[in-house]
Design a protein around this nucleic acid. Structure first.
Lengths: 152, 152
DNA sequence: GTACCATTGAGACGGGGTATCACTATGAAG
DNA sequence: CTTCATAGTGATACCCCGTCTCAATGGTAC
């Protein structure tokens, strides 16, 4: 599901990253990469696997994990721990901003960010080449505050 | 190891949080909380368990995980995925800033942060009560860039 | 002090993620 | 195009982190 516009836009941003890093351009990898790009958000490895299978039937779990690992190493993806279940979620990096409720786990994304300046300065000082960043603000949403208790 | 000043300063910031949330004040919990506060940084549950055992011998794994879960629910701690091994790390929240190398996993902490303003604005708009935030900047450190390849 | 029930410790359990290995297919060379 | 070395793949066995269960313990209210 989704518009067709979003699909064609990026023929392979992540794929290109892999190529440029010297990795082979294989169908399974492209499937994983497409699954990530089309989901354009946070997905469990499980969900990405299912999505990748739709694109490239027969792909194995291991390949999905391996590809995610490669992308993590390249800084293109960032695994996090999901609120519910505690499983991990890969997040495409490049500037992600989350407002996370400690109570119910709700995640609200937002765009505003003032870190560009600071990030660049800190990175330069340490000799880092920036690839992306993640800003998470933790708090309690209105509902959870009203409810009082935060329990499960 | 560590100065004595840091220790006495917070007789129980986290412990107080637990109490105020209505949880009982038990020795095992205090041990976990102390372990976290004294480590004052990122630790694997395993490491925290060992630290807690030194404080309260006989404490079980489950209790450590349970306490970490409670603290997570209260927003006092935030689990992340460690670079090496992929295990999870609890992070005391309240404003943490990391510069993470995608290549070797090195984590450099820094203080500068310009998010106070943005965070407050976004949070207010969404009706959130801020507890803390985490800013992670991903990139490649000098060494890893020189080495060229980022592989394992 | 007594009673109720949240909390604990020990151990069983489950499942996500990884390691292994034989097979396949990419990309380079000629 | 054909050949070749080897990166990459799929299937599966395997491991271990984190969770669940349950009887015993100990906090807190009265």
């Amino acid at each position: 599901m989704k518009s067709s516009e979003t699909k064609a836009e990026r023929p392979g941003l992540l794929a290109r990253l892999l190529r440029e890093a010297g990795y082979r351009d294989t169908a399974p990898r492209r499937a994983v990469v497409r699954a990530i790009e089309e989901a354009d958000g946070e997905q469990s490895p499980e969900a990405l696997w299912r999505a990748a299978q739709r694109i490239h039937p027969g792909i194995g779990r291991a390949t999905v994990y391996r590809t995610l690992e490669l992308l993590t190493g390249l800084g293109a993806v960032r695994p996090l721990i999901a609120a519910e279940g505690g499983r991990r979620y890969p997040v495409a990096v490049g500037g992600h901003h989350h407002l996370v409720c400690s109570g119910c786990g709700t995640v609200v994304e937002f765009d505003e960010c003032a870190e560009g300046e600071v990030a660049r300065r800190v990175a330069r000082r340490q000799g880092f080449a920036i690839q992306g960043h993640l800003l998470e603000i933790y708090g309690t949403c209105g509902d959870c505050r009203v409810t009082g208790e935060v329990r499960t």
